[in-house]
C-alpha cells in the first residue's frame, strides 16, 4: 500500500483563447498530506478540475511547482508524465469511462497491461480490486450489464488496481442517485482509511465533500478557505 504527499506551490495556469489570456489558477498553494482525503469545491471556472489535472500530470502549470511524492511534474516531459501517471495515480471520472466491449475484469486489468506482470498476477490483482469494491461476483459482466453505481465501482477498482500513491476523483458521484452516491463515498472512505490512499476529489455536492478530511474552497484560481472535518479526521486517525 503506497501513499504520497501532494504539494502545490505558487501554481499559475493560464489558458489562451484567440490570443486572449485566461488565468485559471493564480499562484495557488496547497499541501495534501500522505493518506489525506481532500475535497475540492468551488463555482464553475474556479480552477478545481484544472488543479486536479495538474496534480494528475495531465497538464503542466504555467508557473510554480506541483510535487507528488518525489516527483516534480513540471520538470517532466509528456512521455515521462504519462509513464509516471500509470504507476502513481488512479483516476475516477464522473462518467466512469469504462470500455463497453470489455468485461468488468478486463476493464480493471487495463492499467496493469502497462506493467511487466505475469498474467496470473494480473488476474489476482484484478480479483482483489473487484472484491474490495464489492464486485467479486461481477467479473465477467460487461458495463451494459451493470448499474451506474456498479460501473463506478468498476472504475474505482480500475483506479486502485495498480496500488497508486493518490486517487484523483472528478465528480465521482455526479451521475449517481443519493443512495448509490453514499455507497461510492463509503468506498472512497474505505480506500482512504483502510488503505491509506491520498484522495483529491472535485465535487459540487456538499454532502459528498463532508465525507472528506478537509474541504478546500477555490475561488477565481485561489484558495478561498478550508474546512477541517473533525469526524472524518478522527476516524482516519483511529484507523
Amino acid at each position: 500500500m503506497s501513499s504520497a504527499e501532494i504539494e502545490v506551490s505558487q501554481v499559475r495556469k493560464v489558458y489562451y483563447k484567440d490570443r486572449l489570456e485566461i488565468p485559471v489558477l493564480d499562484g495557488l498553494n496547497l499541501k495534501i498530506a500522505a493518506g489525506e482525503f481532500v475535497a475540492l469545491m468551488g463555482p464553475s471556472g474556479s480552477g478545481k478540475s484544472t488543479l486536479l489535472h495538474l496534480v494528475g500530470g495531465l497538464d503542466t502549470p504555467t508557473g510554480g511547482s506541483v510535487r507528488v511524492g518525489d516527483a516534480y511534474l513540471e520538470s517532466m516531459t509528456e512521455r515521462e508524465r504519462t509513464a509516471w501517471r500509470s504507476r502513481h495515480i488512479g483516476f475516477i471520472f464522473q462518467m466512469y469511462h469504462l470500455v463497453p466491449v470489455l468485461t468488468a475484469a478486463q476493464n480493471v486489468e487495463l492499467p496493469l497491461l502497462l506493467f511487466k506482470m505475469a498474467a496470473n498476477e494480473r488476474k489476482e490483482r484484478v480479483k482483489t480490486a473487484l472484491t474490495i469494491v464489492g464486485l467479486g461476483d461481477r467479473m465477467d459482466h460487461r458495463p451494459n450489464q451493470l448499474s451506474g453505481g456498479q460501473e463506478q465501482r468498476v472504475a474505482i477498482a480500475r483506479a486502485i488496481v495498480t496500488d497508486p500513491d493518490a486517487i484523483l476523483a472528478d465528480e465521482p458521484t455526479g451521475d449517481l442517485d443519493a443512495k448509490t452516491s453514499d455507497e461510492i463515498l463509503d468506498l472512497l472512505n474505505l480506500l482512504n482509511s483502510e488503505f491509506g490512499k491520498s484522495i483529491l476529489m472535485v465535487t459540487h455536492d456538499p454532502k459528498a465533500a463532508s465525507r472528506s478530511n478537509r474541504i478546500v474552497h477555490l475561488e477565481k484560481g485561489l484558495l478561498e478557505r478550508e474546512e477541517i472535518n473533525p469526524v472524518t479526521v478522527r476516524e482516519s486517525a483511529v484507523a
Binding site: 512521455r79 504519462t82 501517471r85 483516476f91 471520472f93 469511462h97 470500455v99 487495463l110 492499467p111
Partner: peptide, 13 residues
C-alpha cells in the same frame, strides 16, 4: 474519443 482520452489518462501513450 472519451474512451481514447481515458486510455491516455490512465497511461497508454
Amino acid at each position: 474519443t472519451r474512451e481514447i482520452a481515458m486510455l491516455r489518462t490512465i497511461g497508454f501513450d
